[in-house]
């Protein structure tokens, strides 16, 4: 069986600056992966390349064995690839519920009966329950708190019924209690069968979450393996602690 995601020799440059240099990553279905690295090391750029927002200059990206390198992001979403944004990007003129209608209408429309409004809204409510946001379904995205915005990002991403979910710093700037809540949500989602890549700076959360850690530094993978192993790697220690 082919890997869920295969990133091969991906290089991405911005005006001559190499944000990703020859990155190779393979992800197996079911895994929980922490993607770490200092600020500006290329984590978000890698997510953008995988989700199709950026086209890398070199390299291929395969999803379930298919080469998706030239597909637009919406085509990748239909294949089962979902992501969240480091700075939440809600559909701010819509209610929380209606935010979820977008992926429901555009991605899973053949899996649910869209003409049956009750069924659609039941589906939305179930999604919100999974991210513990069901008490805010009628609220406008504009009125949400930080942690609620992060939950909405997650709900919108899983509404597309993805096989792979990539979260870009879903916990940054949250209080400890909220960090733990998001962590629990992500663990639940993984238990329900979604493979998750979590980009995060909060090391405690990364250690609790990850079965495997990938560390980027200056656009290159400097270590990839079991958490304890990666954290003990001298290059990782140097990149993080500057020692």
């Amino acid at each position: 069986m082919s890997a869920l995601l295969e990133v091969k020799n991906v290089t991405k440059r911005f005006f001559g600056f190499t944000a990703l240099g020859d990155v190779n990553v393979t992800i197996q279905a079911g895994d929980r992966i922490g993607l770490i690295g200092p600020n500006g090391s290329g984590k978000t750029t890698l997510i953008n390349c995988v989700s199709g927002v950026f086209k890398p200059e070199v390299g291929t990206i395969r999803f379930l064995g298919d080469d998706i390198s030239s597909l637009a992001p919406h085509r990748r979403a239909k294949k089962g690839l979902a992501r969240t944004f480091q700075i939440p990007r809600p559909f701010s003129s819509m209610s929380v519920e209606d935010n979820l209608m977008v992926p429901l209408e555009y991605v899973v429309h053949d899996l649910i009966d869209l003409t049956n409004e009750t069924a659609v809204y039941d589906e939305a409510r179930e999604l919100l329950r999974r991210v513990r946001l069901d008490d805010r379904k009628g609220a406008f995205a504009n009125d949400l708190s930080q942690v609620e915005l992060r939950k909405l990002e997650l709900a919108r991403a899983i509404a597309a019924r993805p096989q792979l979910l990539i979260c870009d710093e879903a916990m940054a700037g949250l209080a400890t209690k909220e960090v733990n809540e998001i962590l629990d949500i992500l663990l639940d989602l993984n238990a329900s069968g979604i493979t998750i890549v979590m980009v995060e700076h909060i090391m405690q959360a990364v250690m609790r979450f990850s079965k495997r850690i990938i560390c980027l530094s200056a656009g290159r993978v400097i270590s990839d393996g079991a958490p304890a192993e990666v954290m003990a790697h001298p290059d990782v220690r140097r990149a993080y602690l500057g020692s």
Partner: peptide
């Protein structure tokens, strides 16, 4: 219709709409 929801989504956050399956172009 679905068109209106998609247009509204891309007006609010175009990249997020695209990543949510909306063929924005």
């Amino acid at each position: 219709s679905w068109l209106g929801r998609g247009l509204q989504a891309l007006r609010d956050a175009e990249v997020a709409a695209e990543c949510s399956g909306v063929p924005t172009l």
